[in-house]
């Protein structure tokens, strides 16, 4: 039942996107987020859409697999959409009791849903195509400058990669414990909220016990191999940029620039045009 969890999961493959340096993908995700929020009209949204489609095609992850991750946020999208639709002031188009729909409300609602969907899909391309280890290695290197102000970057990155590494292990463990308790007649599906919460105890107690046991074992194993933090530690596979990474950086910057240009063009010509047409 936990195999369904796809948000942020790595999808093995060997596409151009998979092979990029994790730092490029991190920066790409960041710039993508910036662009999504910069995009405030149909022109720039089209630019972002084109970029997103190109990335999705290039990364060769089945679209169905990617969209599965969206299922978990559908409710959030619907609620946020409804709030935007009904609670935005502006020119009233429909009125139903105390509820009213305005022109700005419709626009906000559509933009909000597009933005949220793009954000989730866009950032999940990063996690789908990058192993958790590569991702933390990229983060560690990109944020290395923070070491100068005494932030333990390596330690935080190590904690992150261990945490990420343990997610599938604990998921599997949960699955196993659940099955073992189900074999003893445990019932997790029926009953009210209170009964269901109580039925989690036979899973949570063994899960915590095993998580602590594993943490202990791992600490011992790390100590046995003389781990003592990041000082003087070298990497087996140091991150190195090659030509395609540099090209990707250029593309990313070009993409943000294009979004901004689209915005300017729209503001200068199209929105004025509409205003003229409406005689404002």
């Amino acid at each position: 039942m936990f195999r369904e969890l796809t948000i942020g999961q790595y999808y093995p493959g060997d596409s151009i996107i998979h092979r990029l340096d994790p730092r490029v993908k991190l920066m790409g995700a960041l710039l993508f987020i910036v662009s999504v929020f910069l995009a405030s009209n149909i022109f720039s949204i089209l630019v972002v859409t084109a970029f997103l489609i190109a990335i999705i095609v290039l990364c060769k992850v089945p679209l169905s697999f990617m969209l599965k991750g969206l299922r978990s946020i559908v409710l959030l999208l619907v609620i946020a959409g409804i709030f935007n639709l009904f609670l935005t002031p502006g020119t009233v188009l429909f009125q139903l009791g105390f509820l009213h729909i305005t022109d700005v409300g419709i626009k906000n609602c559509i933009f909000m849903i597009i933005r949220m969907t793009y954000l989730i899909v866009g950032t999940s391309v990063m996690t789908l195509t990058t192993t958790p280890n590569a991702l933390t290695a990229g983060l560690e290197k990109s944020l290395g400058f923070l070491k100068k102000i005494r932030i333990p970057v390596h330690e935080i990155a190590m904690m992150m990669s261990i945490a990420l590494r343990f997610i599938p292990i604990l998921v599997e463990e949960t699955d196993k414990i659940m099955k073992a308790q189900m074999a003893r007649g445990a019932d997790f599906e029926s009953g009210g909220v209170f009964k269901r919460a109580k039925s989690m105890v036979p899973i949570l107690v063994p899960l915590f016990v095993s998580a602590f046991r594993r943490a202990n074992d791992l600490a011992l194993a790390m100590e046995a191999r003389c781990y003592n933090g990041g000082d003087g530690r070298t990497k087996m596979k140091p991150l190195k940029y090659n030509q395609s990474d540099k090209n990707a950086y250029a593309l990313e910057i070009g993409f943000v620039a294009l979004t901004i240009i689209a915005n300017i063009l729209y503001n200068r010509y199209v929105s004025g045009l509409f205003a003229n047409m409406l005689g404002v």
Partner: peptide, 29 residues
Amino acid sequence: SKVGMVFQYPEHQLFEPTVFEDVCFGPKN
């Protein structure tokens, strides 16, 4: 209940404060 299953490392499923209560879990269910 008719087909009892003892998993690998079944001791990882123990959770009650006492052995007695833990063995009770199945029949109670």
